[in-house]
Structure formats: C-alpha cells, structure tokens
Design a protein around this nucleic acid. Structure first.
Lengths: 314, 314
DNA sequence: TCACAGATGAAACATATTTTCGATCCTGAC
DNA sequence: GTCAGGATCGAAAATATGTTTCATCTGTGA
C-alpha cells in the first residue's frame, strides 16, 4: 500500500500526507458501522451489515467470497473497507479476526457448571481445566508460608525422609520421594501401611516424615506418622483438613484446598492437583536451600537418563 | 509421515483418522510454538519465536515482510505457518491478529519470570501456581478433540487396558490405571519395561495400550507400545512431542503441552500437570460412556474405603 | 573425505486485492 | 416523457501478496 502511493506518485505532488481521518478501530466496529451506515450506498450497507453481523465468518472470506456472499462486487467490498477507515480489505479482515477472537474469548463463562453425563468432550476438557486452575489459585492463596518455610527447612537438613500416602495420595507421595531423591536426599515413599510403620520406627530426631492425606483421617497414613512423631522425627502433614486427626501428630501443617466434587469428578482430581502444587513448592524450596548439592545431582540424573531415549530424530 | 509409519507396520487397520485433524488454534499459539519448537529447524524457530513474541507486530506484516524481519525467506515463513497447523501464512496472520486483539483487550499478559535460587518462598508459590495454570490453559486449548474422542471410545470398549510410563510419567500411568480400575475396567500400569513387554504380547484386537512419555522418545515405553501395536491392540500415545518416535506406533495421539523449563523447574512439573489433565479427560470421557456400570462401581469403591478412615471427629 | 539427507532461499507460479473504467441506474429539470 | 449529469456499481486489468518449485547449500555420519 505504501508502495502503491510511491509508484502512483508519477507527478510532482510534494509530500502531502494522505488524509487518513479515521485510524483503524480495534473492536468498536459495530458502532462505526451504525454511524456510517446512513452515508453509505445500498451495496455498501449490505457489506457493512454482513461484516458487523458475523465477524468470524467474514474473516474467513476473501474479497471475492465476501462480494459473492453479499451479492456485490470486489470493488464495493474494498470501498466499504475504506469507508470504515481501513486502508483496504486486507486490514478490515485482520480487524475482523481480532474482533472475532475477542468475542470468542469473552463468551466462555458457561463452564462453571458441573460436569454431567451428557456433556460433550469439549465441555469436559474446558470444565476440568477450569476447575484445576481454580484449585491452583485457591491452594496458592491459602498456603501458609510460615509453615511451608518450616517444612522446607526441616526437609533440607533431614538425614532421611519418609513419605506416607495411600490410594491417590500414594502417587503424590511417590512424586515427592522421587524428586527429593533426584537432588540427593534420602527419601522413600511408603504405600504399604505395614512397611510404613516398620520403617517409621527407624526415624529419630533430625529425620522427617511427611503424611499426605486429603481427608486427614486415613488411618494407614496417620499411624506411621504418629510412630515417627513419637520417635522424635519432625513431621509434616499435607492435608485438606487442617483439623483432621493427622494434624495431632504433625509439627507442620500444609493445607491443600478442596474443590467442589461430584459423581463424575471424584475427590482425587482436584485434591491431587492441590497436593502436587504443595509438593512442588516443598521441592523447589529444598532445592534452593541445598542448591550446591542439588544442582549437580539434578544434572547427573538427567545425564543418566539420556541413553534411555532414542537418538534424536529430526 | 506419521501415517506412513503406521501403515508400514503393516496390519489391516480399518478406519484411519483423517490425516489433517489439527485445527488452527485461536489463542493457544504460544503454547503450540513451544510444543513444536524442538522439532523445528533453526530458521523456522526464528520465525516461530518472532511471531510468538510480537503477534500484533507480525500481524501487520506480509510474508515478505516477516521473512525480512526474521532474516529468512518467504518459503520458510510459509513452512512455519504450516507446521503450526495453519493452511498457509494468510491464516496464521489472521490468528495472529486475533491473538493480538485478545492480548490488547486485557487478557493476562505473560508475566512469568523464571524461578531463581534466591526467590523467596512466596514468589516460588506464586510462580509455580501461575505456570501450572498456564500449562492447563495451553493443554486444554491444544487438545485434539477428535483424537480424544477416538481414544475414549477405544478405552470404553476395551477388554483390557495396559498403561506404560517410566520415571515421572509412571505416576501418571498409575493414576490412569487406578481410575479406570475404579470404574470397573481391567487396567494395569507397567513401570517395569520387561514386564510391560511381556504383558504387551498378551494384547490383541479390542485391547488398548496407552503410552505416556513427555519426550516421545523413551525406549522403555515405546517398546511395549510397539509390541501392543503389532499384536493388534489399539494404541494411544500421550506425549509432548507429536512427532516423536512413539507416535509411529500410536493410533491416537494426545498432545500435552510443554512449558518453559529451567534448572530449578525440571520438565517433570508442567509436563506432569499437562499429562494429568489429559488423563482426567480420558477418564471422565470413559466414565460418561460407561455410566451405567461406572456409577455403581465408583460408589462401591468409595464405600469400601470408608472403614479405612477414622470415625468422623467433631 | 565423501555421499547424502535435510534445510534453505531465489525465483517461478498461483491467488488475492486493488484499481480502472465503462455500463447502469437514479434524479430532477425541461 | 425524456434527457443530462452524476452517483453507483461491477468486470476485468493491474498489482501485490502468498505459495510452490527447484537448485544450492549445510551439516552429519560412514
């Protein structure tokens, strides 16, 4: 377009700045259409209305397509675009795409409902993602930084770390243990309650036991924690119920948040997300405090895994 | 080429999914760039980064302009657009305009600084939560619903389900298996690659094998999936690399998103979040389709656990 | 070092947009 | 009624833009 002017300038014409009275608008396009409508010719009005009525659809059309759809010609479409303040149809189209995107992103609050049996998969995905995001926000907001700090300090200096979790929480427990192992700590996750208790007996002052239970009332997790507590270990509870029985034997309590649940959305989902966030915070905190040993350890474990991958493709 | 490989592995596969199911995304473009970046050539990466970094600016450029700005050629720009899932540059440009509009209209601009060694814990919590939220949004936006639907259908009617995952992904694999078991499916997670292969041999048509690997190149996971594939099972890959080797043996590919990573924030974190979301979607989808048997099963497993909790307090 | 596969850009080619220009349609005067 | 003058409009030419081809280049493994 710049080029157009340049080339066209076959005649002297000094440096006259083009009129350009209206800068291209972002989204107030419908308004513009309404203001301009009276000064438009019939065909142009048809184009303008079509465009204002279905930005998304029109953004997908070429000049020719839009001309056909409105029963006019390409020239008219371009003229309309000019009248609306754009240098040409191309730019109108771009603005249209923007408008469509805005409309689409604005029209997404309908996912707060519960997941039901006949929801299409697209809704399931949106709702799940939304819920988990909500859970993360809640958890992060409710985390007690003082408790977290204390828990991190205990872990960072621990001689040995035991983690207890059953059912869905056992995966979280394993995750924590795996991560701590990777930065050189001696950590173990116990899913079997008997072994957990057996091992808890070994713990003493300076060791750390972590119990992960959403309900705060899971016997299989409370028992080993109590044993560890009684043997002098520092105990940490990660639970959704800061008043649950598990907290009786916990030096530090980290509260995970609870989201609304339903038949199709069992507790495991959002509580797991919440627990994992807490675990990650613990891990990063510990890694920071033991950075000198953690960094090489992380590197080493990465290197060790490399050969388990097929050679690069590309 | 994906399709080629699948076919080459030679076995009568009835209805293949349409070759180009990837629909152009509206706004989850930065995410797409990140997932695809590793499989891009240098010049293409330059283009992708430029585009992701300044959507508004790039939307104003023509192919030639963008080629100049990135120091590449028009051909490369078009190739990049194609790789990102658009039919051509024109459509990428349109998407860019949409993205720019969304960003401009107050949508949260990415303010993610990296986590560093001396961040206070409060920052760590906030950054982690923010990142995971971002990951969820990206994953949900990039999930291919057609593939998801197909995967769900396969799982819902499966005689038996095997899930493969190693390292951090093994936890996700276990999670999926646990969940499916709870709604009455016969599912098993294999962390040991030998046992996984041994068991994969048992699979046949009507069975389903799921491989979970972020890198898409984890041998221990690819091998059992290939065995399952060769034995006629329906295979599903949950991976962050839609072009990884694992996809050669996958009937359905579910792409997890990749977030920026750093020393203190190992891959495991956001990829795990992403994988779990996908897993949950699969689970809910299956539960919906098998509702009549799933609902009582869920209830039964809940009841069975009740006595493992201490009697209600308060 | 060589051979090869893949990456890259210049230029040919195809498509989309803009402009030109003549046909048509309206309006109002006679 | 009809005719002049001007506004409106679209077909098609002219131009810009996007896409494809193909030869060259670059890096990699034997």
């Amino acid at each position: 377009m710049k080029e157009n002017f340049a080339r066209r300038a076959g005649r002297p014409r000094p440096v006259a700045v083009p009129p350009r009275p209206a800068p291209p608008e972002p989204a107030a396009l419908a308004a513009k259409v309404r203001t301009m409508a009276p000064s438009m010719t019939r065909s142009m009005q048809r184009v303008a209305e079509t465009v204002a009525g279905d930005p998304a659809g029109c953004a997908a059309l070429t000049v020719t397509g839009l001309a056909e759809r409105t029963g006019t010609s390409e020239a008219t479409v371009v003229r309309t675009a000019r009248l609306l303040g754009y240098p040409g149809y191309r730019d109108l189209r771009l603005a249209l795409a923007g408008l469509a995107a805005q409309q689409a992103s604005g029209a997404a609050p309908a996912v707060t409902a519960d997941i039901s049996v006949d929801d299409p998969l697209s809704d399931v995905v949106a709702k799940l993602a939304h819920d988990e995001r909500q859970t993360l926000t809640d958890t992060a907001g409710a985390l007690d930084l003082v408790q977290l700090e204390a828990a991190v300090s205990a872990l960072a200096t621990a001689r040995r770390v035991d983690v207890y979790g059953t059912g869905a929480s056992s995966l979280v427990a394993q995750d924590l243990a795996q991560k701590l192992l990777r930065i050189g700590l001696i950590a173990h996750a116990h899913a079997d309650p008997h072994l957990a208790v057996t091992n808890a007996v070994q713990l003493r002052t300076g060791d750390v036991a972590v119990a992960i239970t959403h309900s705060g009332r899971t016997v299989d997790v409370i028992e080993p924690l109590q044993v560890a507590f009684d043997h002098g270990a520092t105990t940490i509870a990660v639970t959704g119920r800061p008043d649950g029985e598990v907290t009786h034997y916990a030096d530090h309590i980290l509260t995970t948040s609870t989201a609304r649940e339903s038949e199709l959305r069992p507790a495991a989902m959002s509580s797991r997300t919440s627990q994992l966030l807490v675990i990650d915070c613990l891990f990063i905190g510990v890694a920071q405090r033991t950075y000198d040993s953690a960094a090489p350890a992380l590197h080493a474990s990465y290197e060790a895994l490399a050969h388990r991958h097929t050679p690069r493709e590309r």
